[in-house]
Design a protein around this nucleic acid. Structure first.
Lengths: 355, 355
DNA sequence: TTGTAGGCGTTATCAC
DNA sequence: GTGATAACGCCTACAA
């Protein structure tokens, strides 16, 4: 039931002053008679007047809004990021315009890029002050050319920060995680636990994160034992895939002693598959994951995994964006992110561990 | 690296026509010479020009943007809603301005309302075309007065749809779920499985959802067995609480035969607590939940739960909002939502169930 | 078919 | 300290 909207002009009339005076009061500027200020303020409060951000944006060229393009907000990793970004942005006085492209779950390649490019267009016309990109086509080792063109154009018009593994020589502003280190850490942990035959499951082929984690696993296996191509089962990042991969492994009748899962969801699915076959994790086969998700500490068994300190990631991304918008107002502070931490829990079967 | 922005004026100059002609081409209007149209269109394409949504909003009074206020985007229930709402909104040509108040996790009451009221103010000044409210203070059986005032003011200025259990006589536009039915269904299921002594865990006191589900549980227990106050353990909606409540139950040395959990997360935590004490679900104690979350079909045991058909919920909410904005363009279609469906899985211990 | 002019709500720049 | 007035970029009469 939209009702008639107040404007600064009506307020001015009511108060018997000019619009400039109202504007001054609104923006807490000096040079206004205390008596008038109070009167205007009172009318402002009483009427619940909210100045039009649209009109303000017209003249100030700033919308106080960030655009966020996320590839799958249902993925807990991205949900956490969005949540933290929202908080950090709010602290700095910015709102979030959200675009969920949902391009992380097996869409056609052409559709993916179309949806994301479309989002870029919307962001340009909405005149946001900055853009944060969380995954999507940029996660591919070899992103679509049209996509890169669109992204370049976007970055040419406004500040863009990308939370993803850097794309070499692309010139964009990335905030990355230690993907390879996460994988080497978790693989070494399994080796240290005494397992020699270790498989790798999950992760979509062609995605940088997958490649880097797989490279970490491979490097460690090659260094200490042997890397076997047939011990790698790529798919994607969901529980169903973990379930499917593990089922496949089981049906092969040649079970490894341990498994590195790309993340906790995949690990969950894998453990489920084991249980369905009367096998126990960690007794029959140990599992550890490269990426901690919420609640995995309540799974049975609790999952040994890697904490990437993602909340810090979001803060850094916003800090970088703010700095790009206004370097003097937001000087670049410490942008370092802690290396990933190993969380030893139950699924890797290390004796004597509890919780 | 913001670059100089094009405007309709520059385009007009380049094309040697007037701004109105460019505007006509931009909006695919008639009455423009085909030759000129093509020329303008070409320049438009070549330059990648995006008309300022801000300027358009100034004159059209429409922003093509919905505001979404969500109390905890990390809660999978809300994440799903936001995701579906985004998709439906996008289909209708709307973007989403997201406000995550994060008021679902033990904040101070005063802070909660402040944050949400603040969000309402931002939405008014941003001049969104409509607002969707997902939980928060409105979920309380007795919401804060200031909050209700602010909400009324908001609803007076623009269309508002609230996804939550209706607040009696509040006059707002609600989209609700069958909360009580969900609880009676799941409780009856446990009774039907042969359990007589059934406890209820999870849910924050004073929240309508909690009250309704608890009422459903209570009604069934009173009808078929006995309702015992000391079998109810309220807390909140997270896994940790399920863990804590079940631990408390176990320490009481008077275990019930089955437990109704407020949702799958709480059930997960409860099952974890059982396992930590060498108890098995469903053998030693059965558990069923009132609200399905993603992945709970991969837990061990798979959780017997209720599917509320939440994706439909989001569609209805957006449909209602669109209708409120433009009744003729978006006539109200079928707004019915399927009653909750019982998903019988493993945790309730019904013999012969698989998957 | 086309162009000119006015206005959307606010801020900024001036004089006063 | 205060109030006209000109933008901001676009759309929409209205005129031509």
């Amino acid at each position: 039931m939209p009702k008639k909207e107040l404007t600064i002009v009506e307020i001015a009339k009511m108060a018997g002053v000019s619009t400039s005076t109202v504007s001054r009061v609104l923006n807490k500027q000096d040079h206004v008679n205390p008596a008038k200020r109070q009167k205007v303020q009172e009318i402002l409060d009483r009427s619940g007047f909210q100045p039009s951000a649209t009109a303000r944006a017209m003249v100030s060229k700033r919308t106080n809004t960030f655009g966020v393009v996320v590839s799958d907000i249902n993925n807990p990793y991205f949900t956490t990021l969005v949540s933290q970004i929202e908080a950090a942005a709010k602290d700095a006085g910015y709102s979030l315009l959200l675009f969920n492209t949902q391009t992380a779950g097996g869409l056609q390649q052409s559709t993916i890029t179309t949806v994301e490019i479309e989002a870029f267009h919307r962001l340009e016309e909405k005149k946001v002050d900055g853009v944060l990109i969380l995954g999507g086509e940029i996660d591919r080792a070899d992103p679509d050319a049209d996509y890169l063109d669109a992204l370049h154009q976007l970055a040419q018009h406004l500040p863009v920060v990308i939370v993803a593994q850097p794309l070499k020589d692309s010139g964009f502003n990335f905030v990355a995680r230690y993907q390879k280190l996460a994988a080497t850490t978790i693989t070494q942990h399994l080796l240290a636990c005494g397992y020699h035959d270790i498989a790798f499951i999950g992760g979509e082929p062609g995605i940088t994160i997958t490649n880097e984690r797989l490279a970490g696993y491979r490097e460690i296996m090659e260094t200490y034992r042997t890397f076997r191509e047939d011990r790698v089962f790529l798919s994607d990042y969901y529980a169903q895939s973990g379930f499917d991969s593990m089922t496949e492994l089981i049906n092969q009748n040649d079970l490894p002693k341990a498994v590195v899962a790309i993340n906790d969801q995949v690990a969950l699915g894998a453990i489920r598959a084991l249980n369905d076959h009367g096998l126990n994790c960690p007794k029959d086969i140990a599992i550890a994951s490269c990426d901690a998700f919420p609640n995995s500490t309540f799974f049975t068994p609790r999952i040994t995994t890697i904490d990437h300190h993602n909340t810090r990631l979001a803060q850094i991304a916003v800090a970088k964006l703010l700095n790009a918008i206004s370097p003097k107002r937001y000087p670049l502070g410490d942008l370092s992110i802690e290396p990933p931490s190993l969380l030893i829990r139950e699924s890797s079967g290390l004796k004597g561990t509890k919780s």
